[in-house]
């Protein structure tokens, strides 16, 4: 399992071993303030990263950051 969340601290505390940093608590996969195309590309990159993380060895709760740009609140 890979957990996508904007609260990686809680993810680590609850011992999720594979964590991908999401954009924001109310919308972890995407950015509603971005144009729809950019938002979709952003989401695809997050999911792509998550799939990559599923293929990665880890030993303990580890946070991976997708290569994305977004406007954060």
């Amino acid at each position: 399992m890979v957990q996508i969340t904007a609260m990686t601290m809680v993810g680590k505390q609850t011992r999720a071993n594979r964590i991908v940093a999401g954009t924001s608590v109310p919308h972890p996969c995407g950015d509603p303030s971005a144009p729809p195309d950019a938002d979709r590309a952003l989401r695809k990159e997050i999911v792509r990263t998550a799939l990559e993380v599923l293929q990665t060895d880890v030993e303990q709760p580890t946070v991976f950051t997708p290569k994305i740009t977004f406007t954060a609140k």
Binding site: H27, P28, C29, G30, P32, R43, K44, V47
Partner: peptide
């Protein structure tokens, strides 16, 4: 819930 309601792909990234 406003964003999620408008676009549930934010929580269930089905399109991607």
């Amino acid at each position: 819930n406003v964003f999620m309601r408008d676009n549930p792909n934010f929580g269930v990234p089905l399109d991607a």
